[in-house]
């Protein structure tokens, strides 16, 4: 697992209070990991802070799964 992937997963485990095993690439924040709309905003903000990047709102809307988040961050770095 890449460094980015492990850091993304650590944030998700911390913020959503889910088990690490559940945080797989296909997992949807809202459908699988129990996030609500406020949680997903917070996750995006945490990704921005952790990786020192900006994720515009229109692009944040397309980040719905763990894999999509990792891919976006890898490309943005």
């Amino acid at each position: 697992m890449s460094d980015i992937a492990s850091r993304v997963k650590a944030i998700i485990v911390d913020k959503l209070g889910v088990d690490e095993n559940e945080v797989v690439a296909e997992a949807s924040f809202t459908n699988d990991l129990g996030a609500d709309s406020l949680d997903t905003v917070e996750l995006i903000m945490e990704f921005e802070k952790e990786f020192d990047i900006q994720i515009p709102d229109d692009q944040a809307e397309n980040i719905a799964t763990v894999g999509q988040a990792i891919k976006y961050i890898e490309e943005a770095k």
């Binding site: 406020l38 949680d39 905003v41 917070e42 903000m45 921005e48 802070k49």
Partner: peptide, 9 residues
């Protein structure tokens, strides 16, 4: 502004 979405609630 980087306010947490849970700030107000």
């Amino acid at each position: 502004p980087r306010f947490n979405p849970f700030f107000i609630p």
